[in-house]
Amino acid sequence: MNALALHRDAIVIDEVRLDEARRIAGAVVDPEIPVLSIADLGVLREVRLNDGRIEVLITPTYSGCPAMTMIALEIELALEQAGFGPVTVATVLSPAWTTDWMSEDGRRKLTEYGIAPPVRGAGRRALFGAEEVACPQCGSLDTSRLAEFGSTSCKALWRCNACLEPFDYFRCH
């Protein structure tokens, strides 16, 4: 135990290693949507050194998203396995996460996975408003909402009127 602690104390992390830690942390995937990494989602905010230790800052998506605990554990595990010693994962609330932070790569991967990506700048405040969502299967805009709430907090259930397939839509937040 003491030997291990000494060994950990001896870890020196330079900029190159820090970049590697960023890459490893960013590659952790969302347990609910395994095609998206937390870098794609914009959940990973920063990886930095704090008193010689790696500190990872993440931001929650939805207030009650149960995946956040899982994501924090996965980050700790991935970095420890890569030899970064014990790391801390902290949550930052501000600025509040928005689906606008999702990367282009992430949006493409979502569509390929069969989930329509969030429509940018959609009028989420309209009391009885309508959004225009493209079907991830056939690309048609002739779609309709079946239910605003889907299998996870971040998804709604839609249907394509052209190809008749139901699909998940990643809601704007």
Partner: peptide
């Protein structure tokens, strides 16, 4: 209060669709 303001910035997105759903 910076923390209350940050919690609010997240929660207001959620209360918006809670209101919409209940109104419908």
């Amino acid at each position: 209060d910076a923390t209350l303001a940050a919690i609010a910035a997240k929660a207001e997105k959620e209360s918006a669709y809670h209101l919409r759903h209940a109104s419908e």
